[in-house]
Design a protein around this nucleic acid. Structure first.
Lengths: 150, 150
DNA sequence: ATCCTAAATACAATAATGTTGCATTTGTAT
DNA sequence: ATACAAATGCAACATTATTGTATTTAGGAT
């Protein structure tokens, strides 16, 4: 599920967005692309504790601005970021997919494959973007809980 | 749009949930029911600055536990609370409606009237609840922005 | 009406998350 | 090799939220 990319591709991504190729940015990219779940600043900090907290926040912010990642809040209201599709452009995200927040492991999954139905809003409301949130058990935690009860 | 209730009804609500009828709680209920948008702790604090911050947090928390209100995060990730439907039970919310977050005034509207389509998730995922978020212009801000351009 | 007790509030302290300003370092174009 | 803009590191601060505890209060028992 996780998209596999090598370091050259990450360097290309940075260059394409006029961002300098720095070690912290490459490490963040590498980590985010190696997972199939969203990543928060605390997540990054726990792994890359030699990089300054603020630097991580700023990296996440530029990546979001550039359309490399998009923001999604988990059940606790903390910001998580997930890698975007290829069709995300700067300041114009196409993150209208389903975000699944596991109530056990707290991980946020982006289920891109599901296309969400367009909704008609009441008069006066003009929507720019939609996101669907679902919460429940992810495959991993689902397996664990059924294993226990059997 | 806002649900109109009087003080006796708020007292009944508290009694029904085995909560003591206190001035802070009644004031919070009164404020939340007078609006058609969600309310955050900062919102409450700015109006009821004689009530302790922590008290407001705790009131919001019990109300959520009891199913009187439900939590929804706005675009900034701050917790907002909106009054629930009558069919919300304790610890078992039926808040599967659309939350509309205005990008201008930042208000969160609960659009209960829209029923959201059931989605089938990929194998392994087991959803307990769904919420749809939309962001864009609310009727008020929509009117203002079109007024300007005309 | 008064008293009693559990519940609710106020206050103090602390934690987690996020932001801003500025000095220092670094990537990259020249 | 140099210079400059960009990025990082560090310090300080802001906001949102939580925990502990003393005090107050609501509501039932007497």
């Amino acid at each position: 599920m996780a998209q596999v990319k090598n370091n050259y591709q990450f360097e290309d991504m940075l260059q394409k967005h006029n961002l300098k190729k720095t070690a912290p940015r490459l490490r963040v990219l590498s980590m985010m692309y190696s997972k199939n779940t969203a990543t928060s600043q605390p997540d990054l900090e726990s792994v890359m504790n030699d990089i300054d907290r603020v630097t991580l926040y700023r990296i996440l912010n530029v990546f979001e601005e550039k359309g490399i990642i998009h923001k999604v809040f988990d059940l606790n209201g903390t910001a998580n970021y997930a890698v975007c599709h290829s069709d995300c452009q700067e300041n114009h995200h196409h993150d209208e997919h389903l975000h699944f927040n596991c109530t056990v492991c707290k991980n946020v999954y982006c289920l891109n494959e599901l296309n969400i139905p367009r909704l008609t809003l009441p008069a006066g409301f003009e929507a720019e973007g939609f996101t669907i949130y679902a919460s429940g058990l992810c495959p991993k935690c689902n397996k664990k809980s059924t294993a226990k009860t059997n």
